[in-house]
């Protein structure tokens, strides 16, 4: 069988196949190159951002060691714990917010429903910063922009508005047949029981997806953190710390450490992402189907 199939492929088709694979190989190389380069840089022995050679001359683990032990200038361990605390608390709140809103909009019918979806769409058209600059003033008037209260401020900023990001979860809930709920209601279940004991287990992929995205958000956001933290170096999150390492005054000393830091936070995030991408695809196609 195998031979007959092979014989059928015409030379022209073989050429096309070869070209397609060549193209994919070249493109993959382009896509992976910067990531490969940052990993190389994180092990580079020479300091500084700019070197005369593309590949490092010597390899070392010092960049990682410096990143986790040098607490004087840029305190990476402290930033790491800050971000971890913020991420865990945000994750709890935003998951609850997103799932409750998505469930209500998908399953319940109430007068405010359409209005809410329209408001969410309109708010989505404003540039994110518009609210952010004013949020800073509001947090300031509440005293949440100084000292350790900054952390609370950041938690509020990251989780307060997550109720607007319900689309993917709602799309997923919409694909779960309503007849399951109806059967449960006939058996005497309340809506709360349907939500927690029937829909949630059925929607496990989207629950995992929501938990992970809300956990990742504080690690990768740097704009909000920068505006809220301003000069409070104690309260920096990982993202601002890494951004700072690339500023002129630190660039030479810290560039290779930046690469090490980038690898340190990217590896877990990449693993989480690759694990959850299928949920993302499922949620997206659910959301598109409407």
């Amino acid at each position: 069988m195998e031979d007959i199939k092979k014989n059928r492929i015409s030379p022209q088709k073989q050429l096309v196949n070869f070209l397609v694979h060549l193209l994919l190989a070249v493109l993959s190389f382009v896509w992976v190159l910067p990531i490969f380069w940052i990993v190389l840089t994180s092990f580079r022995a020479e300091k500084g951002a700019y070197t005369n050679t593309f590949l490092p001359q010597g390899y070392t683990l010092d960049n990682y060691i410096k990143l986790f032990t040098d607490r004087n200038v840029l305190n990476f361990p402290k930033m790491f714990t800050n971000t971890l605390i913020i991420a865990i608390i945000c994750c709890i709140f935003s998951t609850f917010f997103v799932l409750s809103v998505a469930y209500s909009l998908s399953r319940m019918r109430f007068g405010f429903r359409k209005t809410y979806m329209n408001i969410a769409m309109i708010l989505g058209l404003f540039p994110g910063f518009m609210a952010m600059v004013a949020q800073y003033f509001i947090l300031k008037s509440m005293g949440l922009t100084e000292g350790s209260a900054v952390r609370l401020g950041l938690i509020i900023v990251y989780s307060a508005c997550t109720g607007l990001g319900f689309q993917i979860a709602k799309g997923y809930f919409d694909t779960i047949p309503k007849s399951i709920d109806e059967a449960a209601v006939i058996d005497g279940a309340t809506q709360w029981q349907v939500f927690t004991q029937i829909t949630m287990p059925l929607a496990k992929p989207i629950v995992i997806y929501t938990v992970m995205t809300s956990f990742i958000a504080p690690w990768v956001d740097f704009v909000f953190a920068k505006v809220i933290c301003r000069a409070n170096a104690d309260q920096f999150t990982v993202a601002i710390g890494l951004w700072n390492m690339l500023q002129k005054e630190y660039l030479y000393q810290w560039y290779t450490c930046f690469a090490a830091g980038a690898v340190v936070i990217s590896v877990p995030i990449a693993i989480l992402f690759i694990y959850m991408q299928r949920f993302y695809v499922e949620g997206m196609s659910g959301a598109v189907k409407g």
């Binding site: 409750s100 319940m108 609210a131 509001i138």
Partner: peptide
């Protein structure tokens, strides 16, 4: 039960009102 949406949506709505709509109007 029948009003579950009120329980579920109150907190998210307050969050959006206080930290999105009020700042936007202010800005």
């Amino acid at each position: 039960d029948s009003n579950l949406h009120i329980t579920l949506m109150t907190l998210p709505c307050i969050g959006i009102l206080v930290f999105n709509i009020v700042p936007l109007v202010y800005m």
